[in-house]
Design a protein around this nucleic acid. Structure first.
Lengths: 344, 344
DNA sequence: TTGTAAGCGTTATCAT
DNA sequence: ATGATAACGCTTACAA
């Protein structure tokens, strides 16, 4: 196991000094005679030389690596997001350090410490909540930060890429309203989260615009972790006046919610119309195929990577960017007009 | 944005030398008076000092970070694997650099280059195929390597964690045989891959043991990428003598295969019994719920992390480890005895 | 028990 | 256009 060649080895076998080699390595950081460059290049691949990232990072106090902090890869939304982000990052020459938080602020805190140590150049994250001080600290250390999917109050200065949560929820609700439903329920994420509150807002707005009232008993905000989506479904159906339509706006809970619906033997869409947030690979495999709000994951990925990398390289205006991408509504067979006198 | 404190700052404010600080940092790397340690510790968190990973790595020529090379996070099998590996790694203090290959040896090659640069301490990978020289090079540079899920010929010296592919395929086939099927088809991964060939072998063995012959026309090996699982299904059903049972042993193709089955309106299990490899979150949501071979993903994760980290820390015997973990067969409602005279 | 100083592989600043 | 050389922050002999 011979030691890997260093820049000095290259310099020696090319018969030049290390500074010259360094210059050809960082193309354009200084003048190099064309013939000299040739020799250097040749030496480089003759020796199979590769720059040690650690040394480079140490020297210029920064890394081209990006930290990716996500709740949980078990949720298809995040795993596809991770897939796209890794892809976009590598196509721009950056690497990705992956950390998961299980939606737990404590774990997230530790992850942030790691990131601090490792001095990544930037971070893309879906914040779990809290840790405001840590996030600030990160920024104070000059690490560029982009939130994806969710924001956090008190961090107005960080870039955010999210989807049009409010509009999308309104859109889904409108669809149901258009079918004639007058008792539409929603299962969202926690109201304390940016996505949870925005989606509930969209839902309410649509209802109000249609001249209906918002019945608080039909609005369920459940955590992202766990299987509480199912319980919310059960609770909703056990109501004296159960809903005839349901919007599952908590991506992490759609599996659980749908699972329960099936267990309970609810006839979809006859007894209950349903729309879910996010187009899972299986949402058209179940019967009936689910109508969904399709989140443009690749756009989220592309923009977040653009933002971090852009900031890290100092392009981009000072002001924090706030990007909202549009979601599509995909109508399949899980919605129908309400049946009068539907009993269960 | 003040500069982050260095080990020297700590030494100064604690009134000791840097080596002492370093010693308390790497607990046990040398003697430190208990009172001195106290002062140092105090100085450390007074200043909020954190070691720069780059410097540490540079100094000792190694990183505690692990490279994770996976085909594709879009496949639930790999996303769950990633999730578990990240988790296990962090619980042992290691970070994970994530790279995806899209099953493309060329992309994989580039990923390996990155890993070389970044001098991660070890790598956990599901090899896409080829790149044998690159893998060797990695090992030659002292980077510990563990293959998970798949192996590669010509790399007998690397640790492998996989599941009992042959036994699991046999098990699934046996189940169908037990139901009385005499025309069982299999859709596997490429025969060139370790998983593809092993599963076909298991399938054949079971058939032979039951006194049946292996009809080559019923054995379809399809790539991991793309949607060819669906086409294989269609081809199988178009046979003059179509199968009455099907084992989808290519995890990456089960969605596509099942999708096509549904499109074609095949009655499961009446017309066709099916068993699929890997317990997707949706496999019990579709109707009928699918009988599956459940892969013990957390075991795969745990063992791979144990292996890399163990090697990196120099424990572990010389000889390459070959771990096979057991998969469970979960019977649900997609299998039944064959119907005589089933026409389509 | 503690301190000094020489690396580790790059980059960047000056001279030449 | 090139070459010395000093950082960068930490680890580790080796001395004291």
């Amino acid at each position: 196991m011979k030691k890997a060649p260093t820049i000095r080895d290259v310099a020696r076998t090319a018969g030049v000094s290390v500074s010259v080699v360094s210059r050809v390595l960082n193309d354009g950081s200084g003048p190099v005679a064309v013939e000299t460059r040739r020799k250097v290049v040749q030496a480089i691949d003759e020796l199979g030389f590769r720059r040690r990232a650690a040394a480079r990072d140490l020297s210029n106090g920064q890394t081209l690596a990006v930290g990716l902090v996500l709740p949980d890869l078990t949720n298809p939304f995040f795993s596809r997001l991770a897939d796209r982000i890794v892809w976009e990052a590598r196509s721009r020459g950056a690497q990705v350090l992956l950390l998961t938080t299980q939606e737990d602020p404590h774990i997230e805190g530790e992850a942030l410490n790691d990131l601090l140590d490792r001095s990544v150049g930037g971070v893309i994250a879906t914040p779990a909540g809290g840790n405001v001080d840590r996030w600030h600290r990160l920024r104070a250390m000059g690490i560029d930060l982009v939130f994806v999917d969710r924001t956090l109050d008190g961090l107005e200065e960080v870039d955010v890429v999210s989807l049009q949560n409010e509009a999308s929820a309104a859109r889904a609700t409108d669809h149901l309203l258009g079918l004639g439903h007058t008792r539409i329920a929603v299962i969202s994420g926690p109201v304390e989260t940016s996505t949870g509150s925005a989606r509930i807002r969209g839902y309410s707005t649509a209802l109000l615009a249609a001249g209906q009232v918002v019945d608080p008993v039909l609005v369920r905000d459940v955590p992202f972790r766990g299987e509480l989506g199912g319980d919310a479904v059960a609770a909703l159906l056990a109501l004296p006046e159960p809903p005839t339509a349901l919007v599952v706006a908590n991506t992490a809970q759609v599996r659980s919610a749908v699972h329960r619906l099936f267990q309970l033997g609810v006839a979809i869409p006859d007894e209950l119309s349903v729309v879910v947030f996010d187009d899972n690979p299986w949402s058209e495999l179940v019967s009936p195929p689910l109508s969904v709000v399709r989140q443009p994951i690749d756009m989220l990925a592309r923009h977040s990577v653009d933002l971090v990398l852009g900031r890290m390289q100092g392009r981009l205006p000072e002001a924090p960017q706030r990007l909202e991408v549009q979601a599509d509504f995909v109508s399949r067979s899980s919605c129908a007009p309400p049946r009068r006198l539907a009993h269960r």
